[in-house]
Design a protein around this nucleic acid. Sequence first.
DNA 1: CAACATCCAATACATGCGTATAGGATGCTG
DNA 2: CAGCATCCTATACGCATGTATTGGATGTTG
Lengths: 208, 208
Amino acid sequence: MRPISEEDLTARARIRDVAMALFAEQGVKATTIRGIAEAAGVSPGLVQHHFGTKEQLRQACDAHVLSYLREQVSAGVTGNELEKPEFVENVHRTAPPLMKYLGRALVDGSPEAAAMFDELVRVTEESLARGDHSEADHRARATVLTAMKLGITVLHEHVSRALGTDLYAPQGALRVGKAQLDLMRPEFLGRELFERARSGLEKYEGRQ
Amino acid sequence: MRPISEEDLTARARIRDVAMALFAEQGVKATTIRGIAEAAGVSPGLVQHHFGTKEQLRQACDAHVLSYLREQVSAGVTGNELEKPEFVENVHRTAPPLMKYLGRALVDGSPEAAAMFDELVRVTEESLARGDHSEADHRARATVLTAMKLGITVLHEHVSRALGTDLYAPQGALRVGKAQLDLMRPEFLGRELFERARSGLEKYEGRQ
DNA sequence: CAACATCCAATACATGCGTATAGGATGCTG
DNA sequence: CAGCATCCTATACGCATGTATTGGATGTTG
C-alpha cells in the first residue's frame, strides 16, 4: 500500500479533492470554478470537461464521501478491521477532509447529506430500542445523539480553536473522544460498547 | 405589550430581520441584496441606504443577535424573569430566527459568532470547575458540551425532519430538551440545575 | 500510418451581482 | 414658506462568475 501523494492522483481526482476542501471551507456558493482550478493546478476548462457543471461537481463530491463512508464503516464494523493499526492510521489520514465536507454539506443543504443524517438516526434509534424496551422517546434521543455527534464535526473549527489543538490531530481527537464519554450516560452506548470505546481510547493514548 | 407584526416595524428593522432569515437559510454568499429587498418589500437601493454594504449589513445582523442574546440571558438569569410565562412566551416567539442565524453565522465564519462560542466555552468551563476540583479536562468537556448544544441549533433543519416536528415548536423543543437531559450525565449541569431544568420542562409539558 | 478518442488550455459570452449615482417624495425646522 | 434632512426608488456601471466553444496535444486503436 504505497503512500498516496497528490501528484499520483489523476487530474480528475485532484480536482474533486480540492473542490471538497474548498466547498467545506467556504461553502459551495462562495467557491468558484476558477478557484478550484487554480488550487488544483489546472485550467478552469478542465474542471468543466471532467464534471460538466458546478452542480454536477458537487454531486460527485457528495457521492464520493457517501461511498467512502459506507465503505469504511462496513470495513470497520462487519469486517473486523478496527483492530488493525494500519486501518485506523489510514482512516485518520484520509477521513478529516471528508468529514469537514460532510459537515458543510449538512448545512448547505445537500440531499445526500440529509439522507445520511436520517440513516444515522435510524440505526441509532434501532440500537437504543434494542437495549431499552420502555416507552422512552427513542426517536428523539437518537436524533439528539446524532445531531450532537455531527455538531462537533460541523463546528470543528470552533472546537479546535477552543481546544488549542486541531480536532483532527491525534491529541485533539483523543481529548474530544474522552470528553464525550465523560459527558454521556453510559447506558446509551450499551455498557459493553461504552467500555470498549473507553479502553480503545486509552490504548490509543498509551501509544502517543 | 402589543403584538409586534411585520408592518409595525420600521423599514430598517424589517430589512434586518429579512436579511437574518435569508442569511440563515442560504448563507451570506448565496443571499443577494436584491433578494433581501424583494422579501422585505423595498427597493435594493434602500437596503444600501440603511446599511451601506452587504458586509455592513451582515455585521448589523451579528450585532443584533449578540445584543439580543446578552439581553435575554441577563434578564433570565440575573433578573428572575424565567418564572414569568410572558417572558418565556416572548422568547419562544422571537428567538428562533435569531438562533437559526447564530447557527449559520458559526459555520459561515463570523468573528462575532466565534467570540460568542468562546465565551460560552469559558463560562461553561468555569461552571464545571466549580463543581469538580479534580484534574479532569474541563476545557475539553466544556468545549464538547457547547459544541453539542449549538450543534442542535446548527442542524435544526435535520433535527426537525427526523423528529417530524419543528424544533422550534413547543412539542419539538420539549422532546429535544428531555432527550438532552436523558442522554447527559446529571453531574455536569449541577444536580440542582439539572432537577430545575427537568421540573421546568415537565411543568411546561403539563401546560400543553 | 491514419483515424480517433481523451485530456487539457484559451477565449468568448451572457448573466447576475454589489455598489455608485441621481433624483423624487415626505416631514421637520427656522 | 424656504431650506433641509431623511427615506426611498430608479438607473447605470464595472466586475466576477458559470458555461459554451474552439482548438491543440497526446496516446490508442484499427
